[in-house]
Amino acid sequence: MSNEQPRDSEQHIRKIRWRLVLGTGTEDVLGGLPNEWCDRDAAMGFLYNREYGAGRNVRQGGRGNEGDEGGERKGSLDPSQLTVPDWINAVHELFPRKTIERLEKDALERYHLEEMVTNPDLLSRAQPSQTLLKAVLRTKHLMNQEVLAMARQLVWKAIEQLMEKLARQIQSPFTGTVNRQRRSFLKIAKNFDAKTTIRRNLKHYDPGTGKLYIQTPYFYSRMRRQVDRWQIIILVDESGSMLDSVIHSAVTASVFFGIKALRTHLCLFDTSVVDVTQDCTDPVETLMKVQLGGGTDIGQALSYAATLVDNPRRTIVVLITDFYEGAPIDRLFAVTKQLIESGVTLLGLAALDEQAEPNYDRAIAQRMVNLGAHVAAMTPGELAEWVAQKVQ
């Protein structure tokens, strides 16, 4: 009995793989696909349904090229089709690296699906969005210089939209509280001091008309929290599964860099560490340096962070990773313990994006918590609140 189950399972997986290769129409022989494989089937169909022409069989469920001879255009109730950016993102999320490389090779060389990597006219008409941003970051290594320059403009537009959305959320915890003992010459409506304004302008009251004329309005100042240049060291895992977090980390670090009370460092890592602090004010430049994929050495990243620490008790290390360590695990725990015992505050984030839905190695994260680290999944606004509370 115990020997049959693995064989059945292996045969089932083999059938699923053949079903993906052969496409729809083979269900009677191979059976249907489990739900978790349907997205893979759709992604493969987007590319390989193009595999037909005069005298060749059409993979059932596919849609023909409109220019094919004898092709007949018909309306249908088929599911909505993937766009090229959607397809690129789906492929990178659904398949292992070797499969991705083969799919991209076939897309470019066999089917000439070149819209995203060779056609600047198409890119110039594309609407900036986070979906498009991710697709560009995943395929920039395939682009020629002309297309890369156009793609960089799209990345900038998409980042501008994200900055407008997130900047206020990140900055507001650091703006301080109203100081009612100190006047300010900055005329900001929310700091208007009505009581002082009325009292000091009473000499301009006109009994005849019953009106008080305000010649000099008065405003409160705002008191900045006492944060004596805390260090924030942000380490970002640039593996493909962390792309949303990489994008939001670049924006968050850029905003942090503009807060004078903080000294911000930003580093990207896989099996090596790249310090991109000099590009902190330009999240586009930071993102264009991202190299997705590869291994993961979290311990080495934390070791590098340790070399940047000036005052451990005024330092926060924000480690953004899925905690799937590829290097020896003992070194990761050793450097974690060393940092925490020195007085550094270590925050591990399994996700930093608008959804904050983590997928991570819970066992490794828990062992780091046992050593004194904090582990969470946060939005950029929540991270800013957390940092602001720590540095008060």
Rank of each mutant, 00 (worst) to 15 (best):
I214H: 12
E382V: 02
G258Y: 04
A107H: 06
A107K: 05
K337T: 12
K187W: 00
M368D: 03
S272C: 08
H374P: 05
M223D: 12
N144V: 07
S254K: 00
A42Q: 13
R263C: 01
I16L: 08
R313V: 09
Q392L: 06
E238K: 13
G343M: 06
D41R: 03
V387K: 03
H92A: 09
E69L: 11
L268N: 00
T315G: 02
W87A: 10
K337R: 14
I100L: 07
T197A: 13
N89M: 03
M368R: 03
D206F: 00
V29Y: 00
L371E: 05
E51D: 07
E69I: 08
K140D: 04
V274Y: 08
R263V: 01
T281N: 14
I316S: 09
G240C: 12
D330C: 01
E51V: 04
L266E: 01
Q291M: 12
Y324T: 02
T277Y: 11
R362M: 14
S245K: 07
C38I: 12
P328L: 10
A107D: 01
L349H: 00
A334D: 11
R19L: 05
R222Q: 12
L292Q: 13
Y220L: 04
P283I: 13
L166P: 01
I259M: 14
K190A: 02
M44W: 02
W87K: 10
T26M: 10
P207R: 11
E104F: 12
T264H: 01
Q11E: 14
I329L: 13
I233W: 01
R125F: 01
K390S: 06
P283L: 11
A350L: 02
L123K: 11
L383K: 14
F256G: 15
K260P: 12
N201V: 11
G25C: 11
